[in-house]
Design a protein around this nucleic acid. Structure first.
Lengths: 320, 320
DNA sequence: GTGAAAGCGCTAACAT
DNA sequence: ATGTTAGCGCTTTCAC
């Protein structure tokens, strides 16, 4: 080495340790020369915390998921955290397998983006002091922390907006029946509509996927009682629906058929789509997530954070 | 424990180890009960390999980058590798900082998606036996492994196609001047055009970003000598250009103005855009990358893999 | 402020 | 097939 003990080296690399400036410089210089880097694996082993955040992403095709991971990763990197990521392409009911793997790496916390884990595993995480944050997915169980957009308020506002625009024959394009997020949007939308004396919206499944949404749109627009407005459970499906309406049915979107989405993904504001939607404030949600992640982990409270977005009134629901 | 030694436990969790089925079962049962998981950090420490692949992603906004990470992550997960990821949002000239961090975690290999590292760092990685794969970015230096789409062949085919369609007054929208990928596309395009007796294409910078592309498109379409076809260095910019042409200038895309891109991202085939482009076969590239990653790492050859795509002739360059 | 020694949880020889 | 021992690279008491 360069004249000092192992411990001294350790201290030289630890920000607030008691080392004389002189020895630290000497160590750092030597390290530079040897191109030595402290082994974070070993450090994690002895410290018990790895500085790694585990992320499981449910549906990587969905732009709102990739937006979430982008928002999270830049913030975490800034906070000196590292992220170990899994994408579970298949719509597995549960991301347990991935979480198991993540746990073996002793991640400090877990973020699940649009993914679920079993109750038993969630409980085990909580017991081991690993905070689990459900991002954009209402947890099945009470345990854990949940950060979501304002599904209920948003869907209500969309419904209100569509009625105010004069649409009367509404439809709702759902994800799956199971997903809580979807349930919330569906129920809030339907409730508002029916409580205003209108018949319950027609409902169809789009599976949060482009193909599914296109098929659903074709079906919906071919019905004898064709809806005059469709609220899609997310923007990604709304864009597909819009294209089917426009290019396959020759429908004038807005005037003849109102279309609204949810999330306000980047493409929604592109002039080609100009989609009315309710924003899913990913950045603010990511801020919240970080706030929680960076707190001391002893307070293992369970909480549900709902971040409000806002209605984006655009051309796809303009009747004139 | 459950009656056995530490080593026995280790063997029970190692696939091809010499343990009697009986003891393994006993160990696994006990592990289940104690909800014990082998600590991969410790294992990595002693084994010298972590099973972690480090990924740095240059421009997370670019759909072709997110497509790449999606393709890679699903494959790596299937191969039992884990991925530690960084996104370097800012167009830093170099991703060295992130790579340094990754190195501290003793990643087995590095994949840089549209990101660069300094020559010295690259050399150091090679010296330490860590393969560095440049995905979708031609390395500045010869060292390391490079997997790219067929920039040169693709740009040539685009040029050929545009000329055959009867466009004569061409323009090229570039990323940065520095980027090798961009250089290759630009040079191949320009060379083909001029070698066919036409003036060199007008050139403008779009910076691989939507805003930049829109500004560039406005500038280009306002010139006295307005081009009749624009080849954009990637689809993301091409879509922006198309929207500016259509919605701000009222130009009929295809008939009045040909637009071509590069990558064949998902949106390119959407009917709203119907963009002619040259495909960037991310899946095949990811396959190649995995093939290399999973080989024994002693063969530290440097290689450049070029994966051919194909021309996607769509409406944005149809004149009739 | 610095060094010596112990130990984090695991695997890899070597014995048995 | 199983147990024993050593050691991976670090942090952390505890002396000095």
């Amino acid at each position: 080495m360069a004249g000092v003990s192992q411990a001294a080296v350790s201290r030289a690399f630890t920000p607030g340790a008691s080392v004389s400036a002189e020895t630290r410089d000497r160590v750092l210089a030597a390290a530079q020369k040897l191109s030595y880097r402290p082994n974070l694996l070993a450090r994690s082993l002895v410290m018990g915390r790895s500085g790694i955040i585990g992320i499981v992403m449910g549906n990587p095709k969905n732009p709102s998921c990739t937006a979430a991971i982008e928002a999270l990763s830049t913030r975490l990197a800034k906070a000196g955290k590292h992220i170990l990521i899994f994408t579970s392409e298949k719509d597995k009911a549960t991301a347990d397998v991935h979480v198991e793997d993540l746990l073996k790496y002793r991640v400090d916390s877990l973020v699940l983006i649009a993914a679920n884990i079993s109750t038993t595993l969630a409980d085990h995480c909580r017991a081991s002091g690993i905070p689990v944050i459900h991002f954009n997915r209402v947890g099945k169980n009470a345990s854990g922390i949940t950060i979501t957009g304002a599904n209920i308020a948003g869907a209500r506002q969309i419904a209100e907006h569509l009625l105010r625009q004069g649409y009367r024959n509404l439809a709702y394009m759902a994800n799956f029946r199971g997903a809580k997020t979807n349930r919330q949007r569906e129920v809030a939308f339907t409730t508002f509509v029916t409580s205003h004396g209108l018949p319950a919206p027609q409902c169809i499944l789009g599976h949060f996927q482009r193909d599914g949404a296109m098929a659903a749109a074709r079906e919906l627009l071919s019905r004898r009682r064709r809806p005059d407005a469709i609220f899609c459970a997310n923007d990604y499906m709304a864009l597909a629906t819009m294209e089917v309406a426009r290019f396959e049915f020759g429908i004038a979107v807005g005037r003849e058929l109102g279309i609204a989405g949810f999330d306000d993904i980047e493409q929604a504001s592109w002039p080609s789509f100009d989609l009315t939607t309710y924003s899913h404030p990913v950045d603010i949600m990511a801020d919240k997530a970080l706030e929680i992640l960076l707190q001391d982990p002893d307070a293992d409270r369970t909480m549900d954070v709902v971040v409000e977005g806002e209605l984006k009134f655009r051309g796809s629901t303009r009747r004139d």
